[in-house]
Amino acid sequence: MEHLFLVFIALPLVVGGAVLVGAWLLTKIMPGDAAAAKAAAAAQAAAIPAHGPDYARLTPRRKAALRTGIVVLLGLALLTIVEFFLAALGSTALMFVIIILKAALIMYFFMHIAAVWRTEEAH
C-alpha cells in the first residue's frame, strides 16, 4: 500500500513541485531576462488600486452578472440533487438528459460559447 501512496499522492506532489521549481529556476537563468524581470518587479511595486477607473460605471453590469451566476449555480445544484436521487430509478437515458442540461448551462453561461461566433468585442 506504500506503493499506492507513493504513486498517487507523493509522486504527483513531488513531481509537480519539482516542475514548478525547475521552471522558475529556468526563467531565472534565461539570458537577457534580468532587465525584464526588474521592470516587472518595478511595475509591481507601484500600488495597484483595488478598483479600476470604470468601476462605478460598470456596477450595474456586475450586479446583473452576479444575479445570472447565482441563478445558474442554483440550477446546477438542483439538477445535481435531482440526478442523485433519480439514479435509483436506473434509467440511463434520464441521467443523460440531466447531464446534457447541466452541460448546456455551463457551456452557455459560464463558458460563453456564443463568444466564439461573436465578431465584435462586447466589453
Binding site: G22, L26, T27, D33, A39, A40
Partner: peptide, 21 residues
Amino acid sequence: VVGFMIGVGAVSDWLKWARGI
C-alpha cells in the same frame, strides 16, 4: 521530452508570459 522542450527554448516565451513579461 520536458527537458528537451525547455532546453530548445520552445516554451521560453510562455514561461515569460506566465511571469507577466
